[in-house]
Computed example of a mutant assay.
Amino acid sequence: MNGVEERENELRHSSQQHPHEQYYYSTYGFTVVSHIPLPELIPIGACEQPDIEIVAGNVDQTLLNGRQVNRWLQMSEDQCQMWIEGIANYRVENGKRIVIDRRVKEPRASAASPSDVRVYLLGSALGVLAYQRGWLPLHINAVQAPSGALWAFTGPSGAGKSTLGAWLHTRLGWPQITDDVAVIKPEDQVPLLHAGPRKIKLWKETMEALQIDMEGAQRDLSRVDKFHITAPNNHEAPILAPLKHLVILERGATGSQPSLTEVFGDEAVVMLLDTLYRAEFGREFMAPETIVQMCERLAAKLHIYRFARPWGFDEMAENLTPILKKAKLS
């Protein structure tokens, strides 16, 4: 057996523990010590009591005292176990620890690439961990306006939140804070937005239209023409500022004029609830009424809007006029 075959065999049948290697990072407002390198995160100096530990180890087939939610997910009172076929198995424990098991069952199966393993670690697994700690992960793209105010965009899949944020960043120079997920800690007096990994997900046609270099782009695991790219300021300290504006994107009729309408009260709370990242995870670790109360308090501190516009990349500058006018006043 040559060296390459030996390494592949190790990936298939071992849990890849590296107990003597430790890497320290910051993300989502956490400090992290990891036994595997996480190049998407911002490195920090060694700290004595990091918030989270990430280790490579064995994840059992059945979660102790857990229940089967679906074929890939098990939940218990303080743990979550995810089995992502062909990628890895993850166990998230007590809001403090994540175990990754990369073993594969079939002798001839190929181990997933480390970058694919990190996609679920830095997304779903850390999202679960945020809920276990009583925090709110939001599914948003956020940028910083020239006034300093943070604007976040959300909406159904395909609504264009990443495209809109990328346009504001590349065309107007608004700093990109996060794309996909960021965390709000309810204990903060003001709703500071704690950014996740500095990666942006864009359709190929959007990258071409914005003349974004595709070198090093990673194809999305579920969509052929969507790619993950690293933000230019990936290893800079993230901007930590209060979230002030949350915009829910909606499709306007073809030929209609764009409209930005602020919403209040119960409607604003419902829209904020719809912004939560994988809210089904949150309901496993917090009572639904607790989540609603947290969103009520947060909604009272934000300006929440509906933004309807014709979808598509053409006439983007004209379609964003209501937001650009409001941003000058904020």
Rank of each mutant, 00 (worst) to 15 (best):
Gly160Arg: 05
Val190Pro: 15
Pro186Asn: 08
Thr154Gln: 12
Trp135Ser: 09
Thr154Asn: 11
Gly160Glu: 00
Arg133Ser: 08
Gly160Ala: 01
Ala142Gln: 03
Leu172Thr: 02
Pro137Ala: 01
Ala145Met: 13
Glu187Lys: 14
Pro146Phe: 09
Gln144Ala: 08
Trp174Val: 03
Pro186Cys: 09
Trp151Val: 06
Ile140Val: 14
Leu164Lys: 03
Ser162Lys: 03
Leu136Gln: 13
Trp151His: 08
Pro175His: 13
Leu138Arg: 02
Gly148Ala: 06
Ala142Gly: 10
Ile177Met: 09
Ile140Lys: 01
Leu136Trp: 11
Pro156Ala: 01
Ala195His: 12
Pro137Asn: 07
Ser147Val: 12
Leu193Met: 12
Glu187His: 14
Gln144Cys: 11
Gly196Glu: 01
Trp167Lys: 02
Gly158Ser: 00
Leu150Glu: 06
His194Trp: 15
Leu164Gln: 04
Ile177Gln: 05
Trp174Ala: 06
Trp167Gly: 02
Lys185Asn: 13
Pro156Leu: 01
Leu150Trp: 09
Leu172Ala: 02
Gly148Arg: 10
Pro137Lys: 02
Leu192Cys: 08
Thr163Asp: 00
Ser147Met: 14
Thr178Lys: 06
Gly158Phe: 01
Thr154Tyr: 12
Gln176Trp: 10
Pro175Thr: 04
Gln144Leu: 09
Lys201Trp: 03
Gly160Gln: 00
Thr178Ser: 15
Gly155Lys: 06
Leu150Asp: 03
Leu172Trp: 13
Trp135Lys: 08
Val190Lys: 14
Ala166His: 06
Pro175Glu: 10
Gln176Pro: 12
His194Arg: 13
Gln176Asn: 05
Pro191Gln: 08
